[in-house]
C-alpha cells in the first residue's frame, strides 16, 4: 500500500472522529480504497469507515492487505499532522508495520514514524449498506452537534421523533427537560443550513446520550450529517466527506422495559 494525502490533517480528523468509540481497528486496504468496521466493547455502536482513492492525491494498493492498529497509538503519531504537510501511508506486502511519512515542502522537513501492526480478531457484523429506513434527514452537522451537546447535559437518554411537524429532539431528565423542534428549510445562500426530511412512517426512538456525544466528534469531517431511522433497525448517523467516502455510526436504540 502506498497512499498519499495532500493534507495530513484529513487522516487525523478521520482517526480522531472515532478513536474514543473503539480502541482498535482493522483497515482493509484494496484497490478500491481503505475500509474499516469496528464495534465498541458494549456492542451498541458500530463504526463503518470508507476512504476511497478519490480522497488521496495518489493511491496504490497492489493486493488486498489488512492493517490492524491500536487507535490510541495511531492518534499520538497523528498529532504531528499539519495542513501544510502531506502524509503518505506505506505498508509492505508481508505487513508487520505501518510507515507514516509527513512531508512539508515549504519547510523542507520530513518526519517518519513506524508503527507495529497488531493482529486483531474482532467480531464483524453483516451490515446491509442499503438498510431500509422509515425516515431520512439531512441537516447541518454544526446544528446537530449543538443540540446533542445542549440536551445531553440534562439526561442520559436522548429521544428523536419525526412526524408531520418536523424533527423533535428531546430529553426528560430528573431535574429538567428540554426539547428542540426543527422544520425543513432551504437556505439557498447557505446550503449547509438546509434541513430536509423524507419520511414514510413517523418514528420515536431513544438513544443513550453518551454514544451521541461520541458520534458528534466526527462532525469535523463534514458540514452536513445524514440521519436514518427505523423502528426495526439501528439508527445510522453519517458524515460524508467532500472528496468521497465518510464515516457512519450505527447505534442501537434503547427501549422501555
Amino acid at each position: 500500500l502506498e497512499a498519499k494525502f495532500d493534507d495530513s490533517t484529513i487522516f487525523k480528523k478521520i482517526i480522531d472522529s472515532f478513536k474514543d468509540s473503539v480502541s482498535q481497528i482493522n483497515f482493509m486496504c484494496s484497490e478500491s480504497g481503505i475500509e474499516a468496521q469496528a464495534i465498541d466493547d458494549s456492542r451498541v455502536l458500530l463504526v463503518s469507515l470508507s476512504i476511497p482513492p478519490s480522497c488521496f492525491e495518489t493511491y496504490r494498493c497492489d493486493r488486498p492487505t489488512t492493517v490492524g492498529v491500536y487507535l490510541s497509538s495511531l492518534s499520538k503519531l497523528l498529532k504531528s499532522a499539519s495542513s501544510s504537510a502531506t502524509l503518505t501511508l506505506y505498508v509492505e506486502d508481508q505487513p508487520d508495520e505501518l510507515l507514516l511519512l509527513f512531508e512539508e515542502s515549504k519547510a523542507s522537513k520530513s518526519m517518519e514514524y513506524k508503527m507495529k501492526l497488531v493482529d486483531i480478531t474482532a467480531d464483524m457484523l453483516e451490515v446491509d449498506s442499503d438498510m431500509k429506513s422509515d425516515v431520512s434527514v439531512e441537516m447541518s452537522g454544526v446544528e446537530f452537534t449543538k443540540i446533542v451537546r445542549d440536551l445531553t447535559q440534562l439526561s442520559d437518554s436522548f429521544t428523536v421523533s419525526v412526524g408531520k411537524d418536523g424533527i423533535v429532539f428531546s430529553v426528560d431528565g430528573e431535574t429538567a427537560s428540554g426539547k428542540v423542534l426543527l422544520q425543513p428549510k432551504e437556505d439557498l445562500a447557505n446550503p449547509e443550513n438546509n434541513l430536509s426530511i423524507s419520511m414514510t412512517k413517523t418514528i420515536d426512538l431513544s438513544f443513550a446520550s453518551k454514544y451521541l456525544l461520541d458520534i458528534i466528534k466526527a462532525s469535523t469531517l463534514s458540514n452536513m450529517i445524514s440521519l436514518k431511522f427505523s423502528e426495526e433497525t439501528p439508527a445510522l448517523f453519517e458524515f460524508k466527506m467532500e472528496k468521497g467516502g465518510g464515516i457512519g455510526f450505527y447505534l442501537a436504540p434503547k427501549y422501555d422495559e
Binding site: L125, E126, E232, A252, K254
Partner: peptide, 13 residues
Amino acid sequence: MKQRTLMAFFKPK
C-alpha cells in the same frame, strides 16, 4: 430504559 445491542439487528460475519 434498557439498551439494545447491535446483535439484536445484525448477523455475525
